[in-house]
Structures are given as structure tokens and as C-alpha cells.
Write a protein that binds this DNA or RNA. Structure first.
Lengths: 120, 120
DNA sequence: ATCGCATATTCAATTATTCTTATATACGGA
DNA sequence: TCCGTATATAAGAATAATTGAATATGCGAT
């Protein structure tokens, strides 16, 4: 597979690689929502929500539907919903380490590794 | 779901969000490989491969196994293999637009949208 | 036409990723 | 021990992503 195709996939993952956008997609997985509904549910600034939606839109991950004054967004392909479901499963499976990882967050003690040890 | 859990998921996606790391994972999905084998197959610089492997390692996506002089890496959880498979399916389904998107790459003509049009 | 609301875009500042080059560490063998 | 190979890390420059504030656009109602 060529570099360009991998860039396409990487682009999709990159679009998913932000907590806010994951939150948005988890909402849209259930049903179509307007921008203001999303802002309300997720406590987002309007401009910020719009920017994140733009990221998702540019990757064709999300579909806008205009209705009068507002824009309703929906998840374009259920496959990405499945991906999110798999991630949920993955998350549960690795709950312990996920929590540990989150607890470690912010620490920067370097803890030099002992000789003969495999890298962190 | 809390912000911290979404950060965990976003972190995984972020680790997947690079063409080189996708290439690495697609190789490891098939079988365990040493760093030098990966470098050879993917035509990577040693230092660069090592950095990308470090990203995957820190997320516990990939597992190092030391054997004498070298380190063999494997995919830690087949779920992520499934995720890559779903992405492949997604990719095929949206092949047309993917190609269009890739063709557009590098252009920066802004193409002002017509009034009454839904955003890009 | 003008107002008000919903949404989108732009800009500048900050922060995070990525690449390259150089150096460090760990190991096995002579 | 010292050497060569495999891998990891560090440092710096280049690039990209994120944010908040300000502004723009599109639409419905008056």
C-alpha cells in the first residue's frame, strides 16, 4: 500500500485524535444534532465547536444538513461508529493501565531505566 | 464519559495518526518483527523508526521483546488489528472521495462557496 | 432593509509533532 | 577488555494543531 493511501487513513485517525471530537462523535453516533445542541450537551464554546466540526467535515466524517437557521450534523458512515465501539471495548479491556496512564499524566520524573531492561 | 477517558482514546488515535506508524502496525498485524526488519521493509531511517516505535510503545499499543542484540515488536492487542481492518473497509467504501481528496492535496485555491451552500 | 440568532471563518499566540543529526546505551564476540 | 552492531534518546529546527477573540455570513422575522 502506498504512502498516499496511508496518509488518507492517518488523516481520519488524526481527525479522531482529539477529546472534543471524540465527544462530538459519540454524541452523533446516537443521533443527528444541531451545533447548538452539541455546544449545550458538551459545554463547548460556539467557535470551538464549529472549528472541530470543520475538521470532521473536511474529512467527510460528518455530514451537515441545513434546516432554516441551523445546521444539523450526523455521522456519515456507521463504520466509524463501529471503530468507536471497538475503542470502547479496547478501553475496558485495558482499563487498569488506562487509569494508571492517566494518573501518571503530568509527572515528568524520568526514572532512568535499569540496565538490561526493555524500554518503557 | 469524562474528559480523562476521552483523552485516553484520543491518545490512541493520535498514536495511529501518522502514515509511518500505520505502515508499522500493518506490518506487525501479520507477525512480530525486529526494528531492523521494519526499517528494511518500510525503508525507514533507524532513528525515525525508533521514535515512531516509542510513540506506539508509550501507548502500550506495541510490545517489545528483547532477544540478544535486537528487539522484536508485536501488536499487543488484536482489537487494534480489527480497527485497522475496519479502516481498510472504510477506505474501500470511500475510495472515490479518498482519491479526490488526495488529488486535491497541495492545492490552496480557496474556491469561495456560493451563497446558500452548505460549508465544505 | 434591518435586526437578531445560529454558525462559520480569520488571525495571532501558544503548544505539540515531526524530522534530522548526533550521541548514548546494551549486547555479543574476539 | 575493546569493537561492531542494534536500538534508543536528545537537541534543535521546521511544521502543524489548538485556542480565544474578533469578525463575517446566512437566514427568518419584522
Amino acid at each position: 500500500m502506498q504512502e498516499s493511501l496511508r496518509r488518507f487513513k492517518a488523516g481520519i485517525f488524526q481527525a479522531l485524535a482529539h477529546p472534543t471530537r471524540i465527544a462530538i462523535l459519540e454524541q452523533l453516533k446516537e443521533r443527528e444534532l444541531s451545533v447548538s445542541e452539541l455546544c449545550e450537551r458538551l459545554a463547548l464554546e460556539q467557535a470551538n465547536a464549529s472549528q472541530h466540526l470543520a475538521v470532521l467535515r473536511h474529512r467527510n466524517i460528518v455530514l451537515p444538513r441545513k434546516e432554516g437557521n441551523q445546521v444539523h450534523y450526523s455521522l456519515r458512515d456507521p463504520i466509524l461508529g463501529q471503530v468507536l465501539d471497538l475503542m470502547r471495548e479496547y478501553f475496558h479491556k485495558h482499563l487498569e493501565e488506562a487509569l494508571a496512564m492517566l494518573r501518571e499524566e503530568g509527572k515528568e520524573s524520568v526514572a532512568p531505566r535499569r540496565r538490561n531492561e526493555v524500554p518503557r
